[in-house]
Amino acid sequence: MKTVITAAGNTADSAFDRRFGRGAWFCVLNASNQIEEFIENVLVEASNGAGTKAAEKMVELGIGKVISGDFGPKAKDLLDKFEIQMVILQDESLTVQDIVNRFQHE
């Protein structure tokens, strides 16, 4: 199951972005929680529907779990419908690597 973390940049040291639809980058992790790729979010500047489109993108990529800071009501509905797990982290001082490291403790 693939995981997505919303990130402010495209490296492992980038800060975790708490926005979902308007987060700058999506960091995709593979099933064994290794960073696979960074996908630029083209919807950062969108005036509306960013959350919905980002959620559709997750479905398209076959993501099973999304880690972000907040989900809008529409994004939440859509992710719920496709049974994608949402994880909310409140701590904005984290980097992408910090979150990946948390998985390694398992």
Binding site: I67, D80, Q85, V87, I88, Q90, R102, E106
Partner: peptide, 26 residues
């Protein structure tokens, strides 16, 4: 919504998931 008591992550559990453990710290 659920909250993990050890790492304070908040998360949802989709219907297809069987286990009720934290998706981050397990």
């Amino acid at each position: 919504w659920y909250e993990c008591l050890s790492c304070h992550a908040r998360f949802t559990i989709p219907r297809s998931h069987k286990q009720n453990s934290c998706p981050l710290c397990a």
